[in-house]
């Protein structure tokens, strides 16, 4: 199937074309993003450091992402444990509601929360309301990741701990928790990435809070700032690839710990 292979390579080119351009124009000594290139410079990177607003937006985004990812992972642990370990009335609708944000356009999550916050309670949206909404949309991803972590775990392990005299809490702490740590870490990393990258909710609820995506959106309105976007993008790509590799390494370690073979497949 040679033609299929050629197609696959072309497709990868399509996927990577924009990302390959990032560093090229980030180091290009011209305010206009076009060929031919005019020479190498690091001025756009040093220029980034002067963008006070950007460092502020970055800090806000990371803070929001850290808090959102923590809450989403904790809620995910609860839901995944309930979903994989026990049967209870109305299990499907309850878990369905928790997973619903997965099939809801983000604009719905953003507007519906905004109405409640602004119109019903008369509050000002801000970082806190972005966190509330991010927890909502990240939780389903955490649940999905943690579900598979719990499913890979032999339920007899926890029973064995109980049988050997541990309380439920002790069994969770000494057996279940250490074995699902890799799942918790990758849930956290993925929730963190989603929150960090989320635009619509952050934009609708920004008020006086500017997250990094909202800030980048602002930059794209000014053609002269495009090289800065390129430099920032280069840094972000590098950071996210490092995070991604870390997450994959954790996943594999988890499989190894649980004594399972790697069945391949990311996510």
């Amino acid at each position: 199937m040679r033609s299929l292979r050629v197609y696959a390579v072309l497709y990868l080119l399509f996927l990577y074309a924009p990302i390959v351009l990032l560093p090229i124009f980030a180091f290009n000594d011209s305010a206009v993003i076009s060929f031919p290139l005019s020479g190498a410079t690091t001025q756009w990177f040093t220029g980034l450091a002067d963008e006070r607003e950007m460092t502020g937006a970055l800090r806000t985004s990371i803070l929001i992402a850290l808090i959102s990812a923590s809450f989403a992972t904790v809620l995910g642990i609860f839901a995944a444990m309930a979903g994989t370990r026990s049967d209870f009335p109305a299990k499907r609708p309850i878990l369905g509601l928790i997973m619903l944000p997965l099939v809801l356009p983000e604009v719905i999550v953003a507007t519906s929360l905004l109405i409640v916050i602004v119109q019903v309670f008369g509050l000002d949206p801000g970082a806190w309301s972005i966190i509330v909404a991010h927890v909502l949309i990240c939780t389903p991803f955490s649940v999905a990741i943690l579900n598979s972590a719990f499913q890979n775990l032999d339920p007899a392990l926890e029973e064995a701990a109980l049988d050997l005299g541990e309380s439920r809490r002790g069994a969770f702490r000494r057996v279940t928790l250490p074995l699902i740590v890799p799942g918790i870490v990758s849930s956290f990393l993925i929730a963190f990435t989603i929150s960090l990258d989320e635009f619509i909710i952050a934009f609708f609820m920004s008020g006086n809070t500017t997250t990094l995506p909202v800030y980048i959106y602002g930059l794209t309105r000014f053609p002269g700032k495009m090289p800065l976007v390129m430099a920032l993008g280069t840094l972000l790509v590098a950071a996210s690839i490092i995070l991604l590799i870390a997450a994959e390494a954790m996943r594999r370690r988890g499989l190894r710990r649980a004594g399972l073979k790697d069945t391949g497949g990311f996510l």
Binding site: P18, D197, P213, L244
Partner: peptide, 17 residues
């Protein structure tokens, strides 16, 4: 999946340029 993990805003901005 790698391109998917790079900032959505940046990717859109790239297509603009």
């Amino acid at each position: 999946t790698i391109p998917f993990w790079t900032s959505y805003l940046i990717r859109v901005a790239l297509w603009k340029v």
